[in-house]
């Protein structure tokens, strides 16, 4: 058993259990902490695949910023109440349908991976390589003009150097656009989360809706959950 294999199986178990915890925890705080476990395991799997920079970014951005932001919102809004997962306001059909969709999705993905295997990705028959000893060369403009660019294992150049060179040459426009995207996101978040003085609460029971009784049932169920 190679080291990579052992690391993979440990992290795969942690990731899957964490994912289960996100879905089946009754408290949103527990869901967020399970999400941390999953994201950390995925960061280790990135390391396991020679993506050192992405592993660092994963830990810093996801577990360090995104999950903390989610936890802040949970604490700020005081929604860290236990939720009754058996509560069925929309009827059991919706949840059964959700399960069926998820199982069908998993079945399709597994079928593609098992029957297609490596061939669907590389277009070549399977060859036992791990850690990047593949001789396959990507056919792209960059690779044709400069065989060293866009390839993961070029001698002993660190991963972050290669990634930086790629981002700041071939993908410089996309990189600049992400800066604009982040600015727009921050402005949008400030606009939406701004507390206005003249806020009207959303009416509990709109008269004009056909399903008024349905909504009332939802509200009653929500009250029970909140009081529980």
């Amino acid at each position: 058993m190679s080291v990579q294999l052992v690391v993979f199986f440990i992290c795969a178990l942690i990731a899957l259990f964490g994912a289960g915890g996100v879905v089946w925890s009754r408290s949103p705080v527990h869901s967020a902490l399970s999400l941390v476990a999953t994201l950390f395991a995925i960061a280790v799997l990135f390391l396991n695949q020679n993506a050192q920079f992405l592993a660092a970014v994963q830990v810093i951005v996801y577990t360090g910023a995104i999950v903390i932001l989610i936890l802040f919102v949970i604490m700020l809004l005081g929604v860290d109440k236990l939720e009754n997962l058996a509560d069925e306001p929309l009827g059991i059909g919706f949840r059964v349908a959700g399960g069926v969709v998820a199982v069908a999705l998993l079945a399709v993905l597994l079928a593609v991976f098992f029957f297609g295997g490596r061939t669907i990705v590389t277009g070549k028959p399977a060859q036992a390589t791990f850690g990047g000893t593949s001789t396959y060369q990507p056919i792209s403009q960059q690779a044709v003009s400069n065989p060293q660019a866009g390839v993961i294992d070029t001698a002993d150049v660190p991963n972050i150097n290669l990634l930086g060179k790629q981002i700041f040459t071939q993908y410089i426009l996309a990189f600049e656009v992400t800066a604009a995207l982040l600015t727009i996101a921050v402005v949008g978040a400030v606009v939406m989360a701004h507390r206005s003085k003249q806020v009207q609460p959303i009416p509990d029971e709109p008269e004009s809706l056909d399903s008024g009784a349905d909504l009332a049932a939802i509200d009653a169920a929500g009250e029970e959950v909140r009081e529980a």
């Binding site: 990705v121 593949s134 990507p138 993908y171 995207l181 978040a189």
Partner: peptide
């Protein structure tokens, strides 16, 4: 990316991370 020995797989993950961060900020707002 590792299977194809192509660095662009990692580059696109970098961009997905950035967009996910923006998405979480707006979604939480």
């Amino acid at each position: 990316g590792r299977m194809m020995n192509d660095l662009n797989g990692q580059v696109i993950v970098f961009f997905v991370l950035v967009v996910a961060a923006a998405e979480v900020v707006v979604g939480l707002a």
